Computed example of a mutant assay.
Amino acid sequence: MSTGTALVRAPSSRLAEGIVTHIARTPVDVDLARRQHDAYRAALADAGWSTVDVPPADDCPDSVFVEDTLVVCGDLAIVTRPGAPERRGEIPGARAAAESLLLDVVEIEAPGTLDGGDVLQVGDRVYVGVGGRTNQAGFDQLATHLAGRGRTATPVALHGVLHLKSAVTALPDGTLVALPNLVDIQALPQLLPVEEEGGAHVVLLGEERVLIAASAPRTADLIHRLGFAPVVVDISEYEKLEGCVTCLSVLVPPIS
Rank of each mutant, 00 (worst) to 15 (best):
P217A: 14
L241V: 04
P180M: 06
G4M: 11
R25P: 04
A33H: 02
R41H: 03
T51F: 00
S2Q: 14
E197Y: 13
G4P: 09
P193F: 13
L32M: 12
A45F: 00
G116F: 02
A84E: 09
T154W: 08
G227N: 09
R87D: 06
T51V: 09
A24W: 03
S256E: 14
V71F: 12
V106I: 11
R133F: 15
E17H: 06
L158D: 10
E237S: 01
R218H: 11
Y40V: 10
R88N: 08
L32K: 13
P55I: 00
E237I: 02
E237K: 03
H201F: 08
D104K: 03
L179H: 06
A157D: 03
Y127F: 15
V8K: 03
G89Y: 06
G206K: 10
G138V: 07
G129Y: 12
A147F: 09
N135F: 08
R209V: 08
E207F: 05
H159A: 14
Q186G: 09
G123N: 12
G206I: 06
P193W: 11
D62Y: 00
I19Q: 12
P172R: 12
F228A: 01
G48Q: 02
I212P: 03
G206S: 12
G227H: 10
V250I: 11
A220Y: 11
L192M: 10
H159K: 05
D221C: 06
Q136C: 13
A98F: 04
R35P: 08
E208R: 15
T134R: 03
L164M: 13
R34I: 06
D59K: 00
G160K: 05
G93M: 01
D46E: 12
G116L: 02
E196W: 12
G243V: 00
D59P: 01
D68Y: 01
A39N: 13
Y238A: 04
L251C: 08
K165P: 04
T169P: 02
Q36W: 02
A84Q: 09
V30W: 02
S13Y: 12
E90D: 14
A47M: 00
G199H: 11
G93F: 00
L241K: 00
D184Q: 07
D53F: 02
E86A: 10
A43V: 05
H201E: 15
A94H: 01
V233Y: 09
S249A: 15
R35Y: 14
P254K: 08
F228W: 04
